[in-house]
Computed example of a mutant assay.
Amino acid sequence: MQTFTLGDFEITRITEWHGRFAPADVLFPSLPADAWREHRSWLDPHHWDAASGDYRAHMQTWVLRGQGRTILVDTGLGNHKPRVHPLLADRDGDFLHRLAAIGVRPEDVDTVVNTHLHTDHVGWNTRLVNGEWAPTFPNARYLMHKADFDYWNPANGVTPRSDFADPADSRAGFEDSVLPVHRAGQAVLWDGAAHALDAGLSLRHAPGHTPGSAVLELHSGTDRAFFVGDVVHTPLQFLLPDHDTCLSEDQRQAALTRRRMLERAADTNALVVPAHLGGAGVAEVAREGTDFVIKQWAPLAAPGE
Rank of each mutant, 00 (worst) to 15 (best):
V109A: 05
P86C: 14
D54Q: 06
W42G: 00
E305Y: 03
H219F: 06
A266V: 02
L277M: 14
D54W: 15
D74S: 04
A266D: 03
H80L: 14
S213N: 07
H233S: 14
D90K: 08
D169R: 15
M59W: 08
A206K: 03
F164T: 07
D291K: 01
F174Q: 01
S52K: 11
N269I: 02
P160E: 08
P303Y: 00
L72S: 00
L271A: 08
A298G: 10
G200Y: 03
E263D: 05
F21V: 14
G281K: 08
A254V: 07
V188L: 10
L197S: 11
D244W: 11
G103H: 08
N130C: 07
H243L: 02
T61D: 00
A196C: 13
R171Y: 14
N156L: 11
A57T: 02
G103R: 08
V273S: 00
P180H: 15
L240Q: 04
T111R: 15
N79G: 03
G66E: 01
P135Q: 08
E284G: 13
P135I: 09
A266R: 03
V215I: 09
P106D: 10
D176H: 07
L72G: 06
D110H: 14
D191V: 11
F227P: 01
T210N: 11
R259V: 04
L218N: 09
G76M: 15
E249N: 04
K146M: 12
H182A: 08
D169A: 13
A255H: 02
V181A: 05
T268N: 05
K81A: 10
N125P: 00
D267A: 09
I71T: 07
R171V: 15
D8R: 12
M59Y: 08
D191L: 15
L43I: 05
H276D: 15
V272R: 03
P167C: 15
V215Q: 00
P207T: 11
L99H: 08
P167M: 05
D110R: 08
T159S: 09
G229H: 06
P167I: 15
F292M: 09
S52A: 14
M261T: 15
D49V: 07
L31F: 13
A194H: 11
L143K: 03
A187G: 10
D198A: 09
V63S: 04
R171L: 13
S41F: 14
D163V: 10
R13Y: 04
D8S: 07
